[in-house]
Design a protein around this nucleic acid. Sequence first.
DNA 1: GATGTATTAAACCAGTCAGTTATTTAACCA
DNA 2: TGGTTAAATAACTGACTGGTTTAATACATC
Lengths: 116, 116
Amino acid sequence: MAPDQLSTTFAALADPTRRAILARLASGEVSVTDLAKPFDMTLPAVSKHLKVLENARLISRRRDGQWRPARLEAHRLREATKWMERYRIFWEQSLDRLDQHLRELQREDKKHGRGK
Amino acid sequence: MAPDQLSTTFAALADPTRRAILARLASGEVSVTDLAKPFDMTLPAVSKHLKVLENARLISRRRDGQWRPARLEAHRLREATKWMERYRIFWEQSLDRLDQHLRELQREDKKHGRGK
DNA sequence: GATGTATTAAACCAGTCAGTTATTTAACCA
DNA sequence: TGGTTAAATAACTGACTGGTTTAATACATC
């Protein structure tokens, strides 16, 4: 069954090698061999990761002679971020709680003469 | 091998059932049976999804009598969003390009008398 | 056209995943 | 105590993953 777009995006991101590839592509197009260099794995393995990223529309490929450089495509990342944004209120809430908790601790400290 | 935190987060999000569970939990704590109701799958399956979400620290559980309600925990979502943020410039760039492209199309249309 | 280089494809393997059914644990009720 | 309800665990399955090695394809260069 063809998984939905968001699932495909998140699944593609759920691998450190693929995230490193995306990070590398942030500074421009790179060939497969160059992409593979930092990794302790064979070229076909990297090629497969690229295929996963391409299927997820997180990168695109073109041909340049014998090279097939990959390029970052960011709109699916934008969609994924948009999905997460709806939860922003929750983590901001908990940050508030953390902040409040720290303030309370400080107040406690003052009360017990441990303030600076 | 224990995968890194970001990989665990993204892997947990790469399933529509789990994302739906998180969405449901956005409106507060829910028991397993209630969580399971909208889904066409057995209770153990939902229980497993909850375990995945719990391992990813995207939810927490507590005991309330015979119930074990789940609660949304958002800070890992915040971390994941922070990771994606670095790519924001790329999708904003491409939106600019899209915008520019649309303007060019409009100009073309006017030139050929297809304007409104 | 032969040879070298960049990349992909094919076949295979071990491990993980998402689901199932059947069983077990835990708490409530009477 | 026994019966019911809520949930987790165990054991199993088929499909998918991330890697390998070997073989094929595509282009470049001589």
